[in-house]
Amino acid sequence: MAMTETFRTPFTVKFGPWLFLILMACLPLVLPGRFWLHIFSLTMIYAIFVLGQNVVTGWAGMLTLGQAAFVGMGAYASVLLTMQAGLSWPLAFLASGVICAACGAALALPCLRVKADFLSLVTIAFNQIFFMVANNWMELTRGPMGIPGVPSMQILGWKARSSSDQFWLILGVAAILFFLVARLMHGQLGRTMKMIRDDEVAAGALGVNVTGYKVLAFAIGCGVCGLGGSLYGHYMRFVSPDMFKLEESLLIMQMAILGGLASMPGCALGAFLMIMIPEALRSSEPWLITIRPGVAGATLVALMIWRPNGLLGFGQMPRSIRRLLRLEKEARP
């Protein structure tokens, strides 16, 4: 009987993202004050970084620890193209994605000669190299002084001035990027990447071009991070090499792990928690100031013990929740 039953997409999967998008779009109307709007804007930008990380690490299974370099590259590219070359923001935004995708693909080639832990080391080194270059190439990046006075995001004469405008613009960009990446990852490309992740030898034996797919994963992941970086630079209106250090890469990785690798909602949840927990703990109390930086780390340790696949890692989601979301059918007696 079960074999002949046609598969129907659960309504939570079909309509959930749209409902979420509508609820998010209403946030500026209900949130008191602009601070929380800023936190949500920052969360969405980080969710884009995590999405980029997840393509490479979650779906393609390559443990990279240098995504902040691509975020920085995207931010600097976009800021310099608008401020120095006079490009409009949308063009600079797209260009930063293309530049980062190309650099990601170029980095992938030497990276593919090493595996697992060594891949992490190569990407950490890449992050350091990016930091050093941004810190020392004075003529281009103004070095450690950073670039102040970055213009706000602007599309066809409409400038995102207020916090709500910026929020909606970032939400729109994030929604499009999540939609596109979801289409790719739930299609043939994503399935092939997962196949390579789970058993590279078997995938190769079946005629899959393993190298090509890995390079593609790097290009997409780094391109997404570059696009996010462009948003970040124009949203913060200031860029400096300090913003793209190794710690930032580790934060993005933590978010990806916390949310659950290879999980679309996990990207958003991980970013949300890792931005929100420190913000919620921000206080003038001296003891809270002291413990605050450690809380995120402690959260991650707790997670590794109880939910090693992340909060929304599919295999780890409790069956009751999966049934509630109609992701799994009731067990028949």
Binding site: R34, M236, S240, E279
Partner: peptide, 13 residues
Amino acid sequence: PREAASVARRIAD
């Protein structure tokens, strides 16, 4: 800088 921007918004808000 990222934290400073958050702090500034929190104070202002």
